[in-house]
Nucleic acid binder design. Structure first.
Lengths: 241, 241
DNA sequence: TGCAAATTATTATCATATAAATAGACTAAC
DNA sequence: GTTAGTCTATTTATATGATAATAATTTGCA
């Protein structure tokens, strides 16, 4: 029932965040799909909390584009198109609904758009600190060398370092999505992080950025994600849902 | 003092949303930069509203990643890296701080990553309805033909249609950013929407998507944004801030 | 000094009362 | 019969006061 570890760690901190988490999950999993959304009073009663707690949770969901409240009309579910999907909490709830291949494909389509561009930008404008962070991420991947536990974390650290090195704060917004995609991909595909081909590809990104070659950095990053995408689509028929 | 027209239209609907808007603006414009964030009681007093209103506004800002509240510790400003920059409201506040060339460049770097990818996806998988919407957007641009008022709206409609036609809901998250970037670019650069070269470029996107040619669609969209970027950087030295 | 307990400042929660907004029904005027 | 106005019921919006939980700080003690 609790949300994925991706979502903000404070989701269960208190009654309000707990209710937020439960409602967010329920909304995303379609519990309120056909029927009218319950009223403030109903929610309070159903979850055994005061109106203040309910109202604050509702307001948070409204801030994420999921609900809207008006006098006499009540609380209404906003269309899915209005949800702030890149919000880490929403992303977390989304994974409870469907850790489907579909969602994974959509994640990686977005990664395929963002990460090569970030790599190219990083090649042009990464600071020394940014380059060092990329270097560290790669070193960790090398050290983890294959199936070790740290391999995935190192992989994530590397990709986040590239996003950060782009210098564009909007690109950093995708860190949760990228982390999630990597964590989820690996679970679904049993891909071995750090296997030689993968390591080589990451090395090419690191090298191109260090060499200040945006085109090569872009291409190398695109290759990494293309590989992932290929593995995923290879599993499309297998995985049930 | 009121937020940009981009931000949710309901920002001034009631006391809570009004306070949300004012606090969001103040935070983004750096009013609380050096000093500790005021307490719940201080905010209530300063804005002449009850604690409920204050708490609900605070909770909404927390939901957008901007604030965090804990007993005894008080309300704290979260680092800018945690803000949900793609949230339409945050985006709106951001434009009040600095409608700077910097921000415009960052917007268009993101557009350059997203929109060509969306165009390529649309070429592969757009539905008939999606194609029709793109077609309508382009027709509107042609009809507006040059400096007419509808030109900008038509331009925006075209770009949003491509995002939607991609079929990936995550790409649709960028509609506010794209709309804003287009509206802002035009104000900053006096670019004439619908001038022949621009129209031609948009026609190329439409045609490539219709022809189901992802590579051409990607290239044509990239060209459009490359043009905008060029005009913007041409103004980099001119605009003061 | 170092640890434990008391203090205190602040948010979290609850309960209750009143106000405001609005959808929908009803009514009256033209 | 259609329009505009009015009423009413429902629901959220706002206000307030009391209590609980939390954690930083201070105090007291060994």
């Amino acid at each position: 029932m609790s949300s994925s570890d991706l979502a903000s760690p404070e989701l269960g901190r208190n009654l309000t965040f707990g209710l937020l988490d439960r409602l967010g999950s329920q909304i995303v999993t379609g519990v309120f799909a056909g029927r009218p959304f319950p009223t403030e009073a109903d929610i309070s009663a159903a979850h055994g909390v005061s109106r203040s707690v309910t109202r604050e949770a509702i307001k948070m969901l409204a801030a994420k584009g999921m609900l809207s409240a008006r006098p006499r009309q009540g609380i209404t579910l906003r269309p899915e198109a209005d949800w702030n999907l890149l919000d880490p909490a929403v992303l977390g709830w989304l994974l409870q609904r469907k850790v489907s291949i579909d969602l994974l494909v959509q994640f990686n389509q977005l990664r395929a758009a963002i990460e090569p561009a970030a790599a190219a930008l990083a090649a042009v404008s990464a600071s020394a600190a940014g380059l060092a962070e990329i270097e560290r991420g790669f070193a960790r991947m090398v050290a983890a060398d294959g199936g070790r536990d740290d391999g995935l974390d190192a992989d994530i650290a590397f990709h986040l370092a590239v996003l950060r090195a782009s210098g564009n704060p909007f690109f950093m917004q995708f860190r949760e999505l990228v982390s999630t995609a990597l964590r989820t991909s690996i679970r679904f595909t049993n891909r071995i992080v750090g296997r030689s081909a993968d390591l080589e590809a990451h090395g090419a990104v690191r090298e191109a950025i260090g060499r200040r070659d945006p085109a090569a950095a872009r291409a190398a990053m695109a290759a990494i994600i293309g590989d992932v995408m290929e593995v995923i689509s290879g599993h499309t028929e297998l995985a049930a849902d």
